[in-house]
């Protein structure tokens, strides 16, 4: 027989022999248990600088937050870059009622605003991309609790609602959150308020969040008011460094608004970041187990 014939027959014979011979000892093939699990770490905290994120608290989890903003940094060293100008602080908690629904309560220094908020995670982005987006609804009821203002309880109320849509791609999360806010009596929330002050504001929150590594992330947020707006108000912009210490998430940021909820950011921010009107602030988030 020619050598060429052997060379032709050898691969075929080898294949047949391999097929006929089964291994006697084999390990299981390793497969992921939850290939369609939700994408993790889409954000590191339930809020960014001032905007809410799609991240909710699952059942049995309690998030505590302390948010601070100070005066404008353009005060220079005389005002210690705004830290001497007093802080607006919001202290709040968010408790997971269900794996997809949480309720929160908080109080802010400015106007003694007390807010009750809820977040409902309708859709979670899946690892296998069978669901490409996170989608959550949020609502909040806010009341100005300052004494001596002469408003009825109903006049002090404001409402805010938003739809948050986010997607994470390779460590970069983008979120859009169209939102609307109603103010029962604008003069209880706007400064200054006039006869032509709108009692309803619409905005579009935009967040870009990028994980540098397991410890650090950067984010930017922008909240333009669409349509009618409070005279003299400016769109809010902020930039943050996120630090994950293993127990807490710190957000250290520069932002134009000193307010800590979207309804008042849209209504009352009077500073333009791009014109150098920004302030220092930091947020602290800590999650506790309720079980």
């Amino acid at each position: 027989m020619k050598i060429g014939t052997y060379l032709f027959q050898l691969p075929a014979t080898l294949l047949i022999c391999l097929l006929l011979t089964e291994p006697s000892t084999a390990q299981l093939e390793r497969e992921r248990a939850l290939p369609d699990a939700p994408v993790d770490h889409i954000f590191w905290a339930t809020s960014n600088v001032g905007l809410n994120t799609v991240l909710g608290m699952p059942s049995g989890n309690l998030n505590s937050t302390v948010l601070h903003t100070f005066g404008l940094v353009d005060g220079g060293i005389d005002r210690f870059f705004g830290l001497d100008d007093g802080a607006n602080t919001r202290i709040g908690i968010e408790a997971g009622i269900h794996d997809r629904f949480d309720l929160g309560l908080g109080r802010m220094t400015f106007n003694n605003i007390v807010d009750l908020r809820g977040k409902w995670n309708l859709i979670r982005q899946k690892r296998d991309d069978s669901r490409p987006l996170d989608l959550a609804l949020s609502f909040s009821l806010l009341t100005n609790t300052q004494s001596g203002m002469g408003f009825d309880f109903g006049d002090r109320l404001a409402w805010h609602s938003s739809v948050m849509i986010a997607r994470k791609i390779n460590g970069l999360t983008l979120q859009l959150s169209p939102m609307i806010a109603w103010y029962n009596a604008p003069e209880a929330h706007f400064f200054p308020a006039s006869a032509d002050t709108p009692d309803r504001l619409i905005g579009l929150g935009i967040i870009a969040f990028y994980e540098l590594n397991d410890r650090f992330a950067l984010s930017g947020e922008y909240l333009p008011v669409l349509g009618d707006r409070n005279p003299g108000s400016e769109d809010t912009m902020g930039w943050a460094l996120h630090i994950d210490t293993g127990g807490h998430t710190f957000q250290i940021f520069l932002t134009s608004s000193q307010w800590h909820n979207e309804a008042h950011m849209m209504a009352n921010n009077r500073h333009n970041f791009l014109e150098g009107e920004f302030r220092f602030g930091f947020n602290i988030h800590r999650v506790f187990g309720l079980r």
Partner: peptide, 26 residues
């Protein structure tokens, strides 16, 4: 064959606190 073979997807472990789970996975 006297063979024992087990494996666990570590991301299926849950401690009850989502944040702690994230730290554990890291």
């Amino acid at each position: 064959e006297n063979l024992i073979d087990f494996y666990l997807d570590l991301e299926s472990l849950k401690t009850g606190i989502s944040r702690r789970d994230r730290d554990m996975y890291r």
